[in-house]
């Protein structure tokens, strides 16, 4: 069963074709990477999956709900994290999590916040304003917000951007554990190829708004005869080499 399905998804801004007739499916319980250079259409695709953006054409279904007609039913079971969307900086971490606990209709929100604080080591910063946190702390808080409703589908836009290697590794380890424990489906947009190789069971490669390749990291490495995903990414981005036919 697929948690996310897109068919003929297209987004046009006037003369600019940002997403060009793409289609992909994300199996339930998997972690799928959405890769591509700047302007490849990753953010536009994620915005359409979240209902922030209306597609010019095509269809999106999340957890069986058609996003054009029934997006709120899907949104209640989804969540999202991005370092580029902030939380109110004057509110404390606890207040922010209470707000989103209510917005997602979480029952027993205090208990949920306590559990997240334990799991993500937020205890010492729960009552500090969100604007006074370090980049690593903000990332953990953003993850706590994204997990407040125990989502079945989690969309992550560069979740470890601007983190030091240690904190980045902690976040990746935690995401692996969370997916294994809950069966959550994760769609990950990232420029960190090592992260994608580690976390993702499937990869969708975007270029100029189109899906140019897809498969497991191992299959992509074999197809492009490369040792790492970064080389595959560069091959695709720079049109250096075609995949070797199987």
């Amino acid at each position: 069963m697929n948690a996310i399905e897109t068919e003929h998804l297209t987004k046009r801004y006037g003369p600019v074709l940002a997403v060009d007739d793409i289609g992909f499916a994300v199996p339930a319980g998997s972690t799928t990477g959405l890769l591509g250079g700047n302007g490849a259409g990753k953010t536009t695709t994620i915005a359409m999956l979240l209902g922030l953006l209306v597609p010019t054409a095509g269809r999106i279904a999340v957890l069986g709900h058609d996003m054009a007609r029934d997006r709120f039913a899907a949104l209640a079971r989804m969540n999202f994290s991005s370092p580029y969307v902030a939380l109110p900086s004057r509110l404390t971490v606890r207040e922010n999590l209470i707000v989103y606990g209510h917005l997602y209709d979480v029952r027993g929100v205090s208990d949920r916040i306590a559990a997240l604080a334990r799991e993500l080591d937020l205890g010492p910063i729960l009552d500090r304003p969100a604007g006074q946190l370090s980049a690593g702390q903000k990332t953990r808080v953003a993850l706590a917000k994204a997990l407040i409703n125990r989502p079945d589908v989690l969309l992550l836009d560069e979740p470890t951007a601007s983190l030091d290697p240690d904190t980045g590794d902690l976040v990746r380890t935690w995401l692996e554990q969370y997916r294994a424990e809950t069966g959550c489906t994760i769609l990950l947009a990232s420029h960190n190829m090592a992260e994608v190789e580690r976390l993702c069971s499937d990869v969708v490669m975007l270029k100029q708004g189109r899906v140019v390749d897809r498969g497991t990291p191992a299959a992509l490495l074999a197809r492009y005869e490369r040792q790492d995903l970064e080389s595959v990414f560069l091959d695709i981005a720079r049109d250096r080499r075609q995949a070797v036919p199987a």
Partner: peptide
Amino acid sequence: EEIWSRNLGHVFVSPLR
């Protein structure tokens, strides 16, 4: 206030109608 705090993205992807 939601715009100033760059929080609208989170608000509009929540189930808030």
